[in-house]
């Protein structure tokens, strides 16, 4: 018998005859649902992620590339890596960045690892949405936007559509039915990388990005 068979045999011999009843998640979440409008959800998301030290800018569909260019200049980003084959990436292809070289991701990570670790100042990604309750971004890795894009460069710029902010993580898993098809890597991000491992003193930029900058696309006239 293999280790696997021995472990499973021991467990099977001891398992209760009837499994417990399936836990009722709705009983916990339904009475606590807030039923917030988009504006409040955005406000709560913003307060949450700002409390984790992220920078949030509200913009519009038309203006965000110019805002990003300005932010890059302010932060002295010389090179920014992005995924070209996305709606946002195609907007960036058209935009002018006076102070920054835009570099589309090309090839496998092995081909650009050294640059990624040593020469790229910022990575830009879209987001799948966000969570109001905790101030959290959701990213799914894809061929166009690999996972290291939001991890290795010191600054991470993330583009978020205000319409995709959901109340809780539980709501996301339910309404979007993530269980039906997860990507290789799904990520929740709440702020720049941090640690409190030295005397409980909070320090940012532990191993991941030191700065997280969120640009929210919000239709004109909505919450600023």
């Amino acid at each position: 018998m293999s280790a696997r068979d021995r472990i499973l045999a021991k467990l099977r011999a001891a398992r209760p005859a009837e499994p417990n009843a399936l836990p009722d998640l709705d009983a916990h979440y339904t009475p606590r649902a807030r039923g917030e409008a988009k504006t409040e959800r955005l406000a709560r998301f913003r307060a949450g992620i700002e409390s984790f030290h992220a920078e949030v800018h509200i913009s519009s569909e038309a203006d965000w590339p110019a805002l990003l260019a300005r932010l890059c200049a302010d932060k002295q980003v010389a090179t920014m890596l992005y995924g070209a084959d996305t709606p946002a990436g195609r907007r960036l292809d058209q935009a002018t960045f006076p102070a920054t070289t835009l570099r589309p991701w090309a090839g496998q990570v092995e081909e650009l690892k050294a640059d990624l670790f040593h020469r790229v100042d910022a990575g830009f990604t879209q987001t799948r949405g966000a969570i109001a309750e905790t101030g959290t971004l959701m990213l799914w890795s894809s061929e166009a936007e690999p996972r290291t894009l939001s991890l290795v460069p010191p600054i991470h710029f993330a583009l978020l559509d205000a319409n995709t902010i959901q109340p809780t993580f539980f709501d996301v898993l339910r309404t979007e039915n993530w269980a039906a098809g997860l990507p290789t890597n799904a990520l929740l991000i709440s702020g720049p990388s941090k640690t409190a491992d030295i005397q409980q003193t909070l320090a940012y930029g532990a191993h991941g990005p030191k700065e997280l900058v969120v640009i929210v696309i919000n239709a004109e006239g909505d919450a600023q």
Binding site: F52, W105, G107, Q108, V109, T136, S141, E143, P146, R147, T148, L182, P183, T184, N185, A186, L187, L188, I189, S190, G191, P192, S193, K194, G208
Partner: peptide
């Protein structure tokens, strides 16, 4: 800060 959900190795098409 991070919740990392991993469902497999690099697939055909994945870049990292």
């Amino acid at each position: 800060t991070y919740f990392n959900m991993i469902s497999g190795p690099r697939k055909a098409g994945d870049k990292d």
